[in-house]
Design a protein around this nucleic acid. Sequence first.
RNA 1: GGGCCGCUAGCUCAAUGGCAGAGCAGUGGGCUUUUAACCCAUUGGUUGAGGGUUCGAGUCCCUCGCGGCCCA
Length: 493
Amino acid sequence: MSEQERNVRLQRLEALREAGVDPYPPRTGAYTPIAEVRAAHDEKDGEQLESENNEVAIVGRVKSHRSFGKLVFFTLVESGVALQVSARKSEIDPEIFRFANKKIDIGDFVRVEGRVWRTQKGELSVDLAQAQMLSKALLPLPEKWHGLQDQEARYRQRYLDLLSNERSREIAILRSRTISAVRRFLDERDFLEVETPVLQPLYGGAAAEPFVTHHDKYDQQLYLRISDELYLKRLVIGGLDRVYEIAHNFRNEGISHKHSPEFTMMECYQAFADYQDMMDLVQGMVRAAAEAATGSLSVKWGDDTLELGGEWKRVSMQEAIVEATGIDILEATTVEALRAAAKEKGIGAGDAPTWAVLVDDLFSEHVEPGLMQPTFITHHPTELSPLAKKSPDDPRVVERFELFMAGMELANAYSELNDPIDQRARFDEQRVQAEAGDDEAHPMDEDFLTAMEHGMPPTGGLGVGIDRVVRILADAANLREVILFPHLRSGDS
RNA sequence: GGGCCGCUAGCUCAAUGGCAGAGCAGUGGGCUUUUAACCCAUUGGUUGAGGGUUCGAGUCCCUCGCGGCCCA
């Protein structure tokens, strides 16, 4: 790395110190946000500004710098809004002009006082009378035309990406607005936001492999949560009838355009509700998020447009798989029978160890990619859903839905299983599946069963993949684009 | 995990196997209306790492690292 420019800047830093100026002062001093300055004066012409003689103080980061010898222009950016500063040698103290002309580098933070005016070219500007360094930058920012293009650098040094690529800044803001909207939506419906353990003695609530860690003082093996489901249900059992958490979960698996090992999931639970109520809830929630983030219920997704208005389609998993493949998963109810049925249709069945995994594979491969517009897939096989209540019409399937959009699963919801006898039986079945080779089978959780035996109300539960919702609302090609600091391999070499 | 592509100055990018370059940024000089300012001059390189082939490798071969795209 070139030390040249850094050394120049270090020399300027030292020069400031020698002149008795702190290059990193503790206080900024009074200032008016640039957005307010612009709002107040953008519409005024030069004559009006001249007559009003408005004195302002602004702060910001130096984005560009142009010197004409006796006249200097530079641009300050603060909170994403830019304003030009001019400095005229004939008008101000020579030392102050020298500071503006020679001491300021691109990337520095400065405070400027002066009059608001318009230049000959009509650019609203602050004509500098006083200036102070607020923070000296030692390293240069990316090039001004093309910004930071290198994908890897954009992820590893996201601060540079945010500074030089407007789109990255927009996505960060869009993500924040999305999460605020979700929180507001639930708060308005009397859900209580809670926090539950990230470090769990036993993982559960989803089908996934966990990260394993260790607490030294207690000599205890712990897992980073794959879900907060079982803790939120304990809270419902404890009388907190409506709870939610916007949680970071961790799954020890590969990375793709739709998977990240660390991701954000909103889970909420509502006593005395069921999966149908959760459909209404998630529909409203995603719409609220879309309105807040994009201002519209028609969301651009690549060459498609996702229509979030109207009633979203509802199809059972059985129907969806029949439609896509001709295979009836409720006719072929063993892994052997299902594999044979697939073979008959000329469809590869892979090496799925169990019927449940094979159903999941068939769905993921043949149905999911085609689910572009918002669609609820309902009534999953019971074996795939150990925490969901069985359907009263057919105990082979459960009261569950997953919401799909843009070929991705966005949400998952159940009428939560609250029968502790059945729950124990389901965990036992999971053990059988684990022994059959399913690495993602749900572990037995005695502590959770004890909680349920004390009495759990009928409950609707919902989980929403926040990163994926943001990705859709941002029309982003990759999940990493909507995660500020995505997981990468270590970069030292 | 597999296939393909990429990694060259702080940034964006060039360079038939034959002297490693440009623009921006930086430095010095000029310039009182620019906003991708302009003009003159100029600094800056372990070409991702390590081997190999060759008179000669950024370029060809091998191994590895990191990233991207596609597939599983």
